[in-house]
Write a protein that binds this DNA or RNA. Sequence first.
DNA 1: GCGCATTGATGGCTGC
DNA 2: GCAGCCATCAATGCGC
Lengths: 90, 90, 90, 90
Amino acid sequence: MTYPSNSGGEMDDPVAGDQLKSIVERIERLEEEKKTIADDIKEVYAEAKGNGYDTKILRKVIAIRKRDANERAEEEAILDLYLQAVGDRA
Amino acid sequence: MTYPSNSGGEMDDPVAGDQLKSIVERIERLEEEKKTIADDIKEVYAEAKGNGYDTKILRKVIAIRKRDANERAEEEAILDLYLQAVGDRA
Amino acid sequence: MTYPSNSGGEMDDPVAGDQLKSIVERIERLEEEKKTIADDIKEVYAEAKGNGYDTKILRKVIAIRKRDANERAEEEAILDLYLQAVGDRA
Amino acid sequence: MTYPSNSGGEMDDPVAGDQLKSIVERIERLEEEKKTIADDIKEVYAEAKGNGYDTKILRKVIAIRKRDANERAEEEAILDLYLQAVGDRA
DNA sequence: GCGCATTGATGGCTGC
DNA sequence: GCAGCCATCAATGCGC
């Protein structure tokens, strides 16, 4: 269903179309922003490379730190579970 | 080479390390922002779905519009190539 | 699991190993063929270049034509989605 | 330059255009074939997966074998160089 | 040697 | 909840 709640409604109801338009525009706007950030990231890598850093290693570093952060979060989550299990509520 | 221009230099030169640190932090900061935006996009889709829109179609629409934009850019690029090929200078 | 259904089976069952071997060989054969085709394509570009054509533009042309075809397919796909969304059944 | 040797020539010379057309068609034909092969490869992987094989490992196997083959070829090439350097001619 | 284009790998999202 | 699909991202190879 492309736009909803028009079951018994006017086909030319401007609201539904505008709502769809709004949704599309919001998404496209956000994707644009996302791309901007992605480009910024590339720039930083390029700049780093220009300063002699090995971007491949750099990426590894970033990846490892992210992985560590995730694991840390995971452990924290488990810890919370334990705490909840022992006393009640964290 | 992980950090450069320390070939004959002081290992404890704080600058290089700080530079690397700065790079890593900038990247991580940007990736955080990127993730935020990505989450926002998901939210919009979820909200749209909540309003009865078919997200699959919605995504198609977005994809097609993007593709159109890309095609436009591509044609412009090839036009530039032609111009370069024919006349002198771009 | 690298090869299956040997959980309680004979390690020296020739069948599983042969099956794997067959798979690997089929893939490698196909990849060889693929490479041959890729080389043929390169040859055509080289020949075109030898005849004075700008391969960069040539590639653009190919890309645009392919993109057009994709877009056509994409539009057809979304049309199908619409039809499904509106009427019942595709 | 999109098509050559028309500097002082007739714009409507049919030959050049046909040549270009031929080139484009040959490339597109070959790319089609290439895609067919690529799809076949995917099929094999899918089938293997259906038989319980881990495609990720499978891909590694293929990659390693390819790498080995390349290294083997490389070593052979070097060996040839040595042989040429010592006695003359391989 | 650099940049680009293609290809392969990984992770996330959707639908069952 | 998992499997399949898709989009993104890294890596390799090619051409200039």
